[in-house]
């Protein structure tokens, strides 16, 4: 009976929202969004500070953000305050999980992992790590960035702990790494404030677009975000592997 009611309710809601979304003059139809009339047009042309120049890969120098990947430009440049908030969210959830688990070091007993897994993981592990680091460092040039790379590192760690069970208890340094990279991220912001006058402001020599060392502080920021995300995710995974302290 409850199911039928819920279904009925959701059907009407679906019908209503779809009619409203489709034929209201607010949302442009699917696929016809014009970038020009939205603020992301300046994010692409990187002319928030005013001077408008056409960007050619490999030539234009000292753009505002200077990152080839517009999304990274937004995430770590224009709206890096969101990302700071974002990192704190992840930090708190990791902290919360470890708080709830409590300070126990008894780990869940798990059966010995299969042969293929043990050998296979040894082979895949280096590839994973390299690609992860690559994604983090090339955040401003190619798709991906700190978060995605960090996730890859964490999955590498997960693979490792799945293959041999003693690995996870051996890692102690994650908490430190997490705290360190978070602090450095804020320090970068404060440095931006002292040097350039505004919190989290990028330095103005952002190099030529498309090169490795371009887009000012953005790659540095993304590097630390990558490390932080990696360590936090591994921390959460390790916490889930722990056995509950009998409170």
């Amino acid at each position: 009976m409850k199911k039928v009611l819920a279904l009925l309710l959701l059907a009407t809601l679906a019908f209503m929202t779809i009619t409203l979304v489709v034929d209201n003059n607010l949302l442009p139809d699917f696929g016809e969004t014009k970038v020009e009339n939205s603020v992301s047009d300046t994010y692409i042309k990187q002319n928030a500070m005013g001077e408008n120049q056409d960007i050619k890969f490999g030539e234009t120098k000292n753009l505002e953000i200077g990152s080839a990947n517009a999304i990274t430009g937004i995430v770590a440049g224009y709206r890096s305050f969101d990302t700071l908030g974002e990192v704190t969210v992840l930090f708190i959830s990791a902290l919360g999980v470890s708080l709830m688990i409590g300070t126990t070091d008894s780990w869940m007993k798990r059966s010995q992992s299969g042969f293929i897994l043990r050998v296979g993981s040894k082979a895949i592990l280096p590839i994973l790590m390299i690609v992860g680091v690559y994604i983090i460092t090339h955040g401003h040039l190619s798709p991906g960035g700190g978060f995605q790379g960090g996730a890859m590192i964490a999955s590498a760690m997960l693979l490792l702990s799945l293959s041999d069970h003693e690995f996870m208890p051996k890692i102690k340094a994650f908490k430190m790494l997490e705290g360190l990279s978070g602090t450095i991220y804020i320090l970068i912001g404060l440095v931006g404030m002292i040097l350039m006058g505004h919190f989290l402001q990028n330095i103005d020599q952002t190099g030529t677009i498309g090169e490795l060392f371009s887009a000012g502080l953005i790659p540095v920021v993304y590097l630390f975000i990558g490390l932080k995300v990696g360590s936090e995710l591994t921390g959460i995974i390790s916490d889930f592997m722990k056995k509950e302290a009998n409170i």
């Binding site: 309710l9 959701l10 209503m16």
Partner: peptide, 16 residues
């Protein structure tokens, strides 16, 4: 959640 959805549905019907 049921109450949230009920309110949203009522208003959307009203709005339509």
């Amino acid at each position: 959640i049921m109450w949230i959805l009920i309110i949203v549905t009522i208003v959307t019907i009203g709005g339509a």
